[in-house]
């Protein structure tokens, strides 16, 4: 069974392929492979992903660190030679090109555990609670997307996750849930 999803951001095809093999062997999905960091519009939609990033791109990571962290992404730097230690702080972990498989596995494991945790404890994330409150207030997907500055597609994904965590499908049911959990006042 697949655990979580990842994006590989590195310009070397050899490293891309190597990372792909490691991720697949750990059952982590790969949603994209790219040479450099994409536009803000794309990366702000990344949620709960494992990002494997060329440590040379630390400055770009630094510029987007707020949104990447807010959306629960785990960022691992890939270093091919000793890099500037000052930039390390933007990464949750650093994988060195010379690391052996067992060491890499340990470094990736934190992410796997965290993703499995969110799945099993079924607690809504802060973002999901925010969205649920808006659904309960009767806002449409389009209105929610506009207010949160996210795409309708992301709203739908959040709603699917909320439904699967709570086991409640209808808008009326979600409203009732939100009221009982004091997120909104029923009029």
């Amino acid at each position: 069974m697949q655990v979580g999803n990842s994006v590989i951001i590195h310009k070397s095809p050899i490293i891309q392929q190597g990372l792909k093999n490691i991720l697949l062997s750990r059952n982590i999905g790969i949603s994209d492979v790219m040479a450099s960091l994409p536009e803000y519009d794309i990366l702000r939609e990344w949620n709960d992903l494992l990002l494997l990033v060329d440590i040379q791109l630390a400055n770009e990571i630094k510029n987007n660190i707020k949104v990447l962290k807010k959306n629960g992404n785990t960022i691992i730097g890939i270093e091919t030679h000793d890099a500037d230690k000052d930039l390390d702080k933007y990464f949750d972990e650093i994988i060195n090109i010379n690391d052996q498989t067992d060491i890499i596995a340990i470094k990736i494991n934190d992410y796997i555990v965290r993703v499995a945790d969110t799945k099993s404890n079924n607690q809504l994330s802060a973002r999901e609670i925010e969205l649920l409150t808006m659904v309960a207030q009767g806002l449409s997907n389009k209105q929610i997307a506009d207010q949160l500055f996210i795409s309708i597609h992301t709203v739908i994904t959040h709603r699917k996750n909320i439904t699967s965590k709570l086991g409640i499908k209808s808008i009326s049911g979600l409203t009732l849930y939100a009221a009982l959990n004091k997120m909104v006042v029923l009029h």
């Binding site: 499908k169 209808s170 009326s172 049911g173 979600l174 009732l176 849930y177």
Partner: peptide
């Protein structure tokens, strides 16, 4: 779909509370 889901949701919510 809506009509069925709402009853199932009500059941789920009552059981939890």
């Amino acid at each position: 779909t809506n009509v069925e889901n709402e009853i199932s949701d009500l059941k789920t919510i009552i059981i939890r509370h």
